[in-house]
């Protein structure tokens, strides 16, 4: 029932959001809401080019740059009419690209690179994250203080993403743990069904705090501190779409980063925008959590000020090496192919 309902509601919401967006832009082309298989984007009568963006997760401040760029008219200034689609477990972003349901998506770097094995070649048009937010958290009360304390413990890892990095971390620390594939809630750790759980600093870690765990009551192992600093969020489109619309794709990446900078400079306004879209999508949300998320994202985006919005080749190579060595990557991609700016 839960699953059936969620599908239904998200479909309805998509339609509602679409309707709202279209009604806001009366002159926008409304003919291409669902199936755009044509790789060449065309402008409507107002001169704006309509593109669709899907985040890789539920709407939240993790993607604030997109919502802000949309709400503050930054996309429009770039000649873009952006339709923001729903994300989440029911709408895998990579699949949406493959199916031609979206022109742009947000993806973790490793996820995006691994798509080549699935026959989907992607282009990074903006690298939002410059530092890994991925970490493993445990309650201090369970006696876990160091990585070796995870030996023989139940460690909850997401069944979809990031398993490779987490497993590599355990392997590097010679930990033999019982891996429990988990969904995306923190309840297993809270109810002590498991001893440790992978979390994102910007999200689940703070959710644990909002469930009454003080930072000093938790032990966290940050992947970035253990030589596994693979940055996460980036904006992607397909190679095919990029080849036909290189400027548009780069504009979308730049506009998104402009949105991020605006959000960073105007956090409370950005939060209003985020809270608004979450409320309209019936996603449980509270402002302090979104504020935390925005703050962490700011640190992640500005971690290397000279590289804002860009993916560094060495980082790419590290990630690629990891995929080849530990995830059995069969179709390695080249940096020049993968990154929009490198192609030029």
């Amino acid at each position: 029932m839960k699953l059936r309902s969620r599908t239904l509601v998200c479909l309805m919401l998509s339609i509602v959001v679409l309707f709202l967006l279209l009604s806001c832009r009366k002159k926008t082309d409304t003919s291409d809401g669902d199936s755009r298989s044509d790789a060449v984007a065309t402008a409507d009568t107002s001169g704006l080019i309509t593109v669709r963006f899907r985040p890789q997760w539920l709407h939240q401040a993790q993607f604030a740059g997109v919502y802000v760029a949309h709400a503050k008219g930054i996309y429009r200034d770039y000649g873009l009419n952006v339709i923001i689609q729903d994300g989440g477990p029911d709408y895998p972003a990579a699949k949406s690209l493959r199916d031609g349901d979206s022109e742009f998506v947000s993806l973790f770097l490793l996820t995006a690179m691994a798509q080549a094995d699935e026959g989907l070649r992607l282009v990074n048009v903006a690298q939002v994250s410059q530092r890994s937010s991925f970490m493993i958290a445990a309650k201090q009360s369970s006696g876990i203080r160091e990585p070796k304390d995870l030996n023989g413990r139940k460690v909850g890892l997401w069944y979809s993403d990031f398993r490779e990095i987490a497993l590599l971390f355990l392997q590097k620390n010679n930990v033999e743990a019982e891996i429990i594939p988990v969904d995306w809630t923190i309840n297993l750790l809270l109810s002590d069904a498991i001893d440790a759980l992978n979390v994102m600093r910007y999200n689940e870690y703070h959710q644990l705090m909002q469930a009454g765990l003080d930072p000093e009551e938790m032990t966290v192992f940050e992947m970035a501190d253990h030589g596994l600093n693979i940055p996460e969020d980036g904006i992607y489109c397909t190679r095919e779409f990029y080849n036909f619309n290189p400027k548009l794709a780069r504009d979308f990446g730049e506009a998104t980063m402009d949105g991020w900078l605006y959000a960073i400079n105007n956090p409370e306004e950005a939060l209003d925008i985020v809270m608004d879209i979450m409320r309209r999508s019936y996603i449980p949300a509270n402002r302090p959590h979104q504020r935390w998320m925005l703050n962490v994202q700011r640190d992640v985006i500005l971690a290397r000020p000279e590289m804002v919005g860009k993916l560094e080749e060495s980082v790419f190579n590290t990630a690629k090496g990891m995929l080849i060595d530990h995830a059995g990557m069969k179709v390695p991609v080249s940096f020049r192919e993968f990154v929009a700016n490198a192609v030029d």
Partner: peptide, 11 residues
């Protein structure tokens, strides 16, 4: 791996 199944199963 949903909470309602996983938590009682593990605990």
């Amino acid at each position: 791996n949903r909470d309602w199944f996983q938590i009682p199963q593990l605990t």
